[in-house]
Each structure stands twice: as C-alpha cells, then as structure tokens.
Computed example of a mutant assay.
Amino acid sequence: MRTDGPDLRHHGDAEVRDDGSALTDLAVNVRSDTPPAWLREVISGSLDGLAAYPDGRAARAAVAARHGLPVERVLLTAGAAEAFVLLARALKVRRPVVVHPQFTEPEAALRDAGHSVGRVLLREEDGFRLDPAAVPEDADLVVVGNPTNPTSVLHPAGTVAALARAGRTLVVDEAFMDAVPGEREALAGRTDVPGLVVLRSLTKTWGLAGLRIGYVLAAPETVAELEQAQPLWPVSTPALAAAEACVSPRPARA
C-alpha cells in the first residue's frame, strides 16, 4: 500500500459512519434515502429467484438496447468500481494517465495493479476545462470523467473524443451523465471513436450504491478481455433486475 501520498481508497462516506453520523454528507453524490418505490418492488420481486445462479442476459440486452448497441459491446459489472479494477488488471498498458480532478478509484485501481500512473491536472483558473493537448501523446490509457465529479464540469463530446489515438484506450467515466438533460455530450453508444471505453453507473441517480451495478460499453474484443478477468456471476440477481428496470423505457415515475 502506498503511504507517500493521499489515501486514494478513502471514500467520503467514511466520515459519516459511527461517530460522524450527525454530519451532513456532501462527499457522496448518490440519491438520498432509498430507491423509488417502484424500483424497490422490482428488486424485492427478484428475491424469489435467489436459489438460481444469476442470469445477466436480459439485463445485458436491455443496456444494449438503451444505447443502440449489440450485446457484444456491453459488460455488466458490480458498479463502476469493478470496471476500473478490470481495466487496470486485464489491459496491457505501459503509460496510463488519469485526468484530475476525478474520482480516486481509477488511479487507485491502476496503482494496485502495479502501474505507474501519470496525472493531468485541470486548473481552476481555466474552469477545469479539458485541453486534449495536455495529455501526453505516448499515454496508452487515458481516464477522464464527464461530467466530472467534484467539479461538475461537462466537457464537450468532441473535446473528449479528441483524446482518442490509435493504440490508446480512452476510458470515459459517465457515471453522472444520466443527470444531464438529454445526456448531451455523451459518448455512450458511439462506435466511431477508436479505443473508446465508456463506464456507466446505475447507483447514483437511483440510490443503489449498496447494490453495486454498472456497465462497460466498448469494442467486443475489449469486452471479451475484461470479461475473462471477471469471476463467474459477478453481478447479483437483484442488481440485474434493477439494471434491466432502470434502463428500460417506461412511464416517468417518482
């Protein structure tokens, strides 16, 4: 474990546990209280199937349909955090770079996997705007959030896509993109950006942080590589039911 810098594994919700329970948690941007009633019903209904091993086919197909992609481009994960770990362990990269400010999870996963990680620091005086030229040309894996937490900056899709290069994996963390009206500037569903890997989380907007569900959108060969690094049945039956419900078309509900 690294001790020469900030604890990248320290998560904001740790401050409100136990003796900190009277504090107001502004560090974790997840829908407060519980998931909406209709979603709780879906999750509860899935408990009748717990005797069987999870079957992710329906949820995977629903995610694919949501983004207009073939199922071969979708990988379901136990939250976006698992996706960061899979990318760090499964892909063969020499010079990964993380664009900050950003979640600490991707850099922590890369360092835990033995990588030396470069950082590109966006500046407050520039409005934390992304300049593709600031990323080293020889970086073969680049991680950037859009919109970015904690700055809330939404980078133009064209600016993010400009980071793509032959031989480079471009990881775009879109965990909060479903909070953007019309999901403008999203790259999810794009197949024309070389090396693109988009991560999505279903735990933020829907108040499901304790359930652990997210997904990866990427080229089929990348999905296959990541899938080989996963354990069998990585996503639980209740999480799969929630995923299918959250991405499927339905009337607006509270």
Rank of each mutant, 00 (worst) to 15 (best):
S152L: 14
A108H: 05
E41K: 07
A209M: 09
E15F: 14
A241V: 13
A229T: 03
R253L: 11
R66G: 01
L141C: 05
V223D: 02
D140A: 06
S201Y: 07
H67W: 14
P70M: 04
A14T: 07
P194M: 05
P101T: 01
A166M: 00
P147R: 10
P36Y: 07
R73M: 05
L8H: 04
A139K: 12
R123F: 11
R95W: 14
T24F: 12
L76A: 10
E125F: 07
E82W: 09
E107W: 00
W233E: 15
L87Q: 13
R2A: 15
M177S: 07
S46C: 11
S236T: 15
S236H: 13
L199R: 03
R190I: 13
R129Y: 08
L232F: 06
W206Y: 15
E125I: 04
G45S: 10
L47G: 03
G114V: 11
V97K: 12
A59L: 12
V99P: 11
A245N: 06
T148P: 00
L202D: 03
V98M: 03
P181G: 10
R168M: 01
G56C: 08
A83G: 15
G5Y: 11
A78L: 14
S21Q: 11
P132F: 03
T203A: 08
R40C: 10
V16M: 03
L26C: 07
E125G: 08
A62H: 13
D126R: 14
R184S: 12
P251A: 09
N149L: 09
L208R: 00
A37G: 06
L232P: 10
L196E: 12
P156N: 02
V135G: 10
A252W: 13
A22V: 13
G182A: 06
L199A: 09
H115K: 05
R165S: 03
S46K: 10
P220M: 04
T205G: 15
S32R: 13
A37M: 06
A243W: 04
E15W: 13
E225K: 06
V99F: 04
A52H: 13
D18T: 01
P106S: 04
E105H: 06
A229R: 08
F128L: 14
V74Y: 03
T34I: 11
L163E: 07
G12W: 09
R111Y: 03
P101N: 04
P220S: 07
P35C: 12
L154G: 09
G45M: 04
R212P: 01
A188L: 09
V198I: 09
A108D: 09
H100D: 09
G127I: 11
A22M: 10
G214I: 01
A241C: 12
N149Q: 13
H10P: 00
A209E: 05
S236K: 10
P251M: 04
P181C: 08
V117G: 12
G158R: 07
L163Q: 02
T3S: 15
S21W: 05
